[in-house]
Amino acid sequence: MTLLDFLNFYLVPGIVLGAIYAVGAIGITLVFGILRFAHFAHGDMATLGAFIALALAASGMDPWVALPLAMAITAVIAIGVDRSFYDYLSRRPKILTVMASLGVALMLRAVVQVVWGVDPTTYVTGIVRPEEYFGILLRPRELNTLLTVVLIVVGLELFLRKSKWGKAMRAMSDNPDLARLSGVDNRKVTMLTWAIVGALCTASGFMLGINTELHSMMGWQLLLPMFAAAILGGVGRVQGAVLGGLIVGITEELSVFVVPAQYKAATAFALLLIILLVRPRGLLNGKVL
């Protein structure tokens, strides 16, 4: 196998998959860092967002144009989910919210199955030939995925570092009591967080759907690698989630050298176990779980 073959058939798909995981893991890390619970409905929220994008695309829109719209719609849905379920439990032990999020996951999935059915589907049909860039083969959708992820990560970082409400989110994650003493409105930060998380979920579900296929269980299958990525990078750290996502994605693709391809999905699980044993705070020293 030549170096180019390795790049084209293993590393590039790994990076694309990892970039998708990264976007999901950022959402998980934001919920954990700011709202302090593990959000198990994350994957199914990604499924819902992906299918909302499908509905928009079915009306004749280019899928990549439908994406930002679907992100906005899912952002509103995510705020609604928080208001309808998690908000009631916010003063109770966090484990109740974690369990409730599992219930929300099942509900969201049921909605997808009732509305769109259980059969796999795609955004666009037909075979797309990859373009060659200095020997590297990239399909337009893969290039779009990578560009979108870069845009999302840079945009989110700028928002968190430079804007008033981005700083309020970081403050709430850093020291919630002091943030309240400084006059930061907890409810507004919570709403903002859910809006961002809903949008990120949609982006990850959409990009997985456009690079493979859409089905009602896709998000649930995303959950484990996304959590592995968030924990690997250090929970509560955006850059950590990106790094973790890339590592998990690339490791999954490279795992076929070592184990049969059916075990690809188990790689994330193995990786998660190893991190928890060796470095539970993650590569970038996240908050202790």
């Binding site: 008033k164 700083k167 309020a168 970081r170 403050a171 850093d174 020291n175 002091l178 943030a179 400084s182 006059g183 930061v184």
Partner: peptide, 16 residues
Amino acid sequence: VFREMTVHENFEMGGF
């Protein structure tokens, strides 16, 4: 203090 924010950002949060 907000440990993971810069000195200046701490002041910004003070003036929130």
